[in-house]
Computed example of a mutant assay.
Amino acid sequence: MEYQAKYISEEIKLSCYEDKFFKSDVMFGQHMLIWFISGETKIVQADASYVFREGDIFLIPRNQLATILNYPKDGRPHQTVVMHLSTDRLREFYAPLDIKPKSRETSKIYHFNKHPLLSSCLSSLIPYFEMDNLPPTLASLKITEAINILRTVDPGIDQTLANFEEPGKIELTEYMEKNFMFNLPLEKFSYLTGRSLSTFKRDFVKVFHTSPQRWLTQKRLELAHYQFTEKKKRPVDVCYETGFENLSHFSHAFKKHFGYGPTELLSRPNGNAV
């Protein structure tokens, strides 16, 4: 896979995947404003999925779990401009403003279609990626411009951008049942549930009576089986949407657990086990 990235600053980059699709399970530590130049992205969250294409603009809030599937399309690479809205940057922006968010951070992805103000702001960055020795104030000005436009387009976005709370300790069962399909290090799960890694592991065993890794693998395989029998999805799609990293490993684990492989299951009448 050919991947290239050009930076105006650490917070603004031009990202390009040239030859084939790229998949990752991620936790967004910063808000990300993304403008699509070409290609296609599917974002799968616990309770929603999204598809974004050329011209789309969207904001992904921080501290969210998601599976990201990036595809080239129509002979063109997957190419995006990505602007990171860091907590430090947003604290500085909101410091003189009297805004007190009333709600906790949302898992909602904000979709702005092809809004002309945001399109103009983000497309104006393209020439800068070919230039050397840009003054550092330039990136700062463009980020401030983007934040101001976001607040103009959606005044309610302050509830997300001005919320600087870190995850607090939450009930483990509901969170893990909702997010088990994301293949992230246990350190990420522990952070998002408001625990140290050692406390997370100890609490997990108390609640689920098994280790986190064993439980996660079983839950992902059970979800995969459901996706085959009820949704009739392709093995490659099920593999990547249930937390596995490659089709070969997924097929082996599936057959070891159920006694038959995905292809065998799908070839049966009605796709059901016997």
Rank of each mutant, 00 (worst) to 15 (best):
D47C: 04
F228T: 04
T199D: 05
I60T: 11
S140V: 13
A139V: 03
F58I: 00
G259L: 00
L118H: 03
V205E: 15
K13H: 15
P269R: 13
I8H: 06
L141R: 13
A253H: 09
Y226P: 00
K201A: 02
P127F: 15
F254W: 08
I147Q: 06
S190D: 01
P269S: 10
F250H: 13
P96A: 07
Q227L: 12
N163G: 09
F112P: 05
I143D: 04
P116E: 09
T80R: 14
I34G: 04
R202L: 01
H111L: 02
E245K: 03
K256E: 11
E2Y: 13
L65V: 10
P262V: 02
I147E: 09
N270P: 00
V153Q: 04
F228V: 08
V82M: 10
K23Y: 08
S190M: 00
L134W: 12
D19A: 00
N183C: 11
D203C: 02
S24F: 08
H249E: 15
R195F: 01
I149T: 04
L117P: 14
I34K: 09
K100F: 13
Q159I: 02
G194N: 06
T137Y: 14
K169Q: 11
A162R: 08
K219I: 03
D158E: 15
G243Y: 12
F244L: 01
H115K: 01
A146I: 11
L14R: 01
F228Y: 15
